[in-house]
């Protein structure tokens, strides 16, 4: 039910992201969306890919430090104020967002966003109470 996110540790230097992406490209793994969190000297690339486990194995093979984490993919309306409204319902449920990012493509006229919460199971329950559609892996990646 959760979506698996791939995170890669990279030094903040020219060519390093390229090296990591080359590994995915060689394995014919497609990136559906990605975001980068950067500190002064390093960054964390987080992405949703077609085969997170396969990508992680290939990256480890090439001596990259990476991990896989469960995140929630949630559909929200693609209209002004929709994200604000979503955040309000998270607040009501006392859910703290560690980070979030969006898919570039819409899904049936709605936006898809990735949320990383402290406690994913608690978040899931709370969001369902609020009536959100939590996407399954298969919805995003395809069969």
């Amino acid at each position: 039910m959760n979506v698996t996110q791939l995170s890669i540790f990279l030094e903040n230097k020219p060519g390093h992201l390229q090296n990591a992406l080359k590994v995915l490209s060689d394995k014919k793994i497609n990136i559906l969306t990605l975001t980068i969190a950067e500190a002064a000297d390093f960054g964390i690339v987080r992405m949703i890919v077609t085969d997170a486990a396969g990508a992680a194995a290939a990256l480890r093979d090439q001596h990259f430090t990476c991990s896989t984490t469960d995140v929630l993919a949630i559909e929200i309306e693609d209209v002004p104020g929709a994200l604000l409204k979503a955040l309000e319902s998270f607040r009501k449920q006392n859910l703290n967002i560690e980070y979030m990012y969006a898919f570039t493509e819409k899904r049936g006229g709605r936006a898809v966003m990735i949320f990383r919460f402290d406690d994913i199971e608690l978040a899931k329950k709370a969001l369902q109470t609020e009536g959100y559609n939590i996407l399954k892996k298969i919805d995003i990646i395809g069969a």
Partner: peptide
């Protein structure tokens, strides 16, 4: 060197 034991997808943990 950052190994998987200390790596996290959260920036704040590494910082």
């Amino acid at each position: 060197e950052v190994t998987e034991k200390i790596f996290s997808d959260e920036l704040k943990v590494l910082e």
